[in-house]
């Protein structure tokens, strides 16, 4: 009994007052998702290495804010996640992502299936608050099956990690500094059409927004039957994982 209690203490933290068991080496995000606790996130995808760039998963522990996706779980941590203050910060971050790009949902084929949009709904975002950047970013339609609309890219770098870690192709990268950071294609021409990206690659399918899209596949789901028409992002996210079968195929 005593041994059992000690074992649990050594591998237990709390999230919003709920005891959560974790395995050594897991991040706070890993432990939360395994316990079916949703911590908002856009750049994290279970099965891919974390990146820590979107900051939606900010939680508070030991009096400071940390990104749950890149912070190791430790025994005894008391973590606050679903608080009005943190959700207000997350809403601000979401508004920043909206104004930095051109997110015109009424004209986007990803609408209803988009994580950025669903995050706005989840956080009760009614408006973008900040002045719009109105960036002019290059569109790449050179690939026969996939097009790249950089005006919708949130630089989550999921495509970068998916292509490198799972597809083994290293098709994408982020280049440029600060507000000039942008998604590039690792070919001499910089064109997607000159890459070996395949429509079935994870990198061609993991974009959470409308930046990497399949050609001639827009508006296939009726309104009401799109992903986030039916379930909010906090429910959908608990079932997501890179399929084990495709993981490490190309290693």
């Amino acid at each position: 009994m005593g041994y059992h209690a000690m074992a649990i203490n050594q591998n237990t933290l709390t999230i919003d007052g709920k005891d959560v068991y974790f395995e050594q080496g897991q991040t706070i995000m890993d432990a939360a998702l395994a316990a079916k606790i949703y911590i908002p996130h856009l750049c994290h995808y279970p099965g891919l290495p974390p990146s820590g760039n979107c900051r939606l998963c900010v939680v508070e522990t030991n009096g400071k804010s940390v990104a749950a996706c890149i912070t190791q779980a430790q025994a005894g941590l008391r973590i606050h996640s679903n608080t009005p203050e943190l959700n207000a910060v997350r809403k601000t971050i979401t508004q920043m992502l909206f104004v930095e790009g051109n997110h015109i949902c009424p004209a986007c084929e990803k609408s209803g299936n988009c994580k950025l949009q669903a995050m706005g709904y989840y956080l009760g975002m009614h408006e973008e608050h900040f002045h719009h950047f109105n960036p002019r970013r290059a569109l790449d339609a050179s690939h026969p099956a996939i097009f790249l609309d950089r005006s919708r890219c949130i630089l989550c770098d999921l495509c970068v990690r998916a292509s490198r870690e799972v597809d083994g192709k290293n098709v994408f990268a982020i280049a440029g500094r600060g507000a000039d950071a942008h998604l590039i294609v690792n070919t001499d021409s910089g064109k997607l059409g000159d890459s070996n990206l395949d429509r079935d690659d994870l990198a061609a399918n993991i974009c959470p927004v409308g930046a990497i899209m399949h050609k001639q596949r827009g508006y296939v789901s009726p309104i009401g039957q799109r992903i986030y028409d039916q379930q909010p992002i906090n429910e959908i996210a608990l079932g997501e994982h890179v399929p084990e079968s495709t993981e490490r195929d190309h290693d």
């Binding site: 051109n102 997110h103 015109i104 009424p106 009614h126 408006e127 973008e128 719009h132 109105n134 002019r136």
Partner: peptide
């Protein structure tokens, strides 16, 4: 009250900002 996507963020007409 700002009503609709256009009033709130420019909407589809703001695509001319490209």
């Amino acid at each position: 009250i700002a009503v609709g996507a256009c009033a709130i963020n420019g909407g589809v007409p703001a695509m001319r900002n490209y």
